[in-house]
Design a protein around this nucleic acid. Structure first.
Ligand SMILES: [Zn+2]
Ligand SMILES: [Zn+2]
Ligand SMILES: [Zn+2]
Ligand SMILES: [Zn+2]
Lengths: 165, 165
DNA sequence: GGAACGGCGTTATAGTATAACATACATGAC
DNA sequence: GTCATGTATGTTATACTATAACGCCGTTCC
């Protein structure tokens, strides 16, 4: 029962937004995607995805682990890393290399470019889908005879909201 | 006594190149830069820089540590991390986030864009200085009202040489 | 039933990075 | 001269991140 609303493809989350809706949308999309692929979004995996979506800030594996333990559930590092590996493989979350942390993908199942703007003041990371940046990278890589397998584009700085203050 | 030769700003190192020259050039440039800035390129820092330049592959802090210990020198993790922190602050090395490793900068002291093409087959990382990529990122960040402080652009894939095989 | 598989529990360990305190030495003030 | 200061390094301990290896359990398929 998700409300129909346009997905922000590169919008910063409004500070006053209803984040429950973000979570609900993400979980519903994950259920749908896994069902379509014949993959099992188990209770554990679903819970980990929910925790990754706790906010719009990248979350560390051990933060997730602490919360799982708080749930009363038995959990150890492999518990959370295995769930994260699954979610990464399904494209439901991304890994933020420069923070050793994970964040939910706002448009899983769709082909998209992936860049992050990471605010070092408030911790928010916004996923961009900027084809122009990828294109610039493609061109240079091609000129070097380099075949791209994966891209990491993570820009840190100060977001508009924090700058306003 | 460095040989005068053009610095490759974005060229992959030739497989048969004289790497001793790369190291010598890098060390000479570091000496010069530190002298100009009144910073101390101590024997330890110089040695760590030399080790980072052992090849054109990013090097892990604990690899460096092992070699330092092999030197007969007393060394612990802070030994190498402090040296690396200094070299990073001086712009003599870069950190490769996606590998948790470090690589020498081929043109320290010059303002430059920094992107890496990382071959997952041979491990070589080439530093690019592509203003076009940075420009694409600048434009998008500006549109989002985001003020950039640092950029991480790391592309992994297969280099031309490995692809040829 | 039994083999094969996937998901998860559990224990141990590997790999990366920093905190905190001690020592050594150079420089400049007095 | 010696005292205070600052910087580099030594040393010990610990925190943080990630994976290896083994075992259990439930489902599916024969
Ligand atoms: Zn995404
Ligand atoms: Zn912010
Ligand atoms: Zn550089
Ligand atoms: Zn290669």
């Amino acid at each position: 029962m998700t409300t129909a609303r346009p997905k922000p493809r590169a919008g910063a989350p409004k500070s006053g937004h209803n984040h429950r809706a973000c979570i609900a949308t993400a979980l519903a999309a994950a259920e749908k995607l896994c069902a379509a692929r014949g993959e099992q979004l188990t209770a554990l995996r679903r819970r980990v995805l929910e925790l990754v979506w706790a906010g719009h800030k990248p979350v560390g594996a051990y933060q997730i682990l602490d919360i799982l333990r708080g749930d009363g559930r038995s959990a150890a590092p492999p518990t959370v890393y295995r769930a994260l590996d699954f979610l990464l493989a399904q494209g439901l979350v991304h890994r933020v290399e420069s923070l050793n942390a994970f964040i939910g993908c706002p448009h899983p199942g769709e082909t998209h470019a992936t860049q992050f703007l990471i605010c070092s003041r408030c911790g928010t990371a916004v996923e961009l889908d900027d084809a122009g940046i990828d294109k610039a990278i493609d061109g240079t890589a091609a000129r070097m005879g380099f075949v791209i397998a994966a891209r990491t584009v993570e820009i840190s700085g100060t977001c508009a909201e924090c700058r306003g203050r």
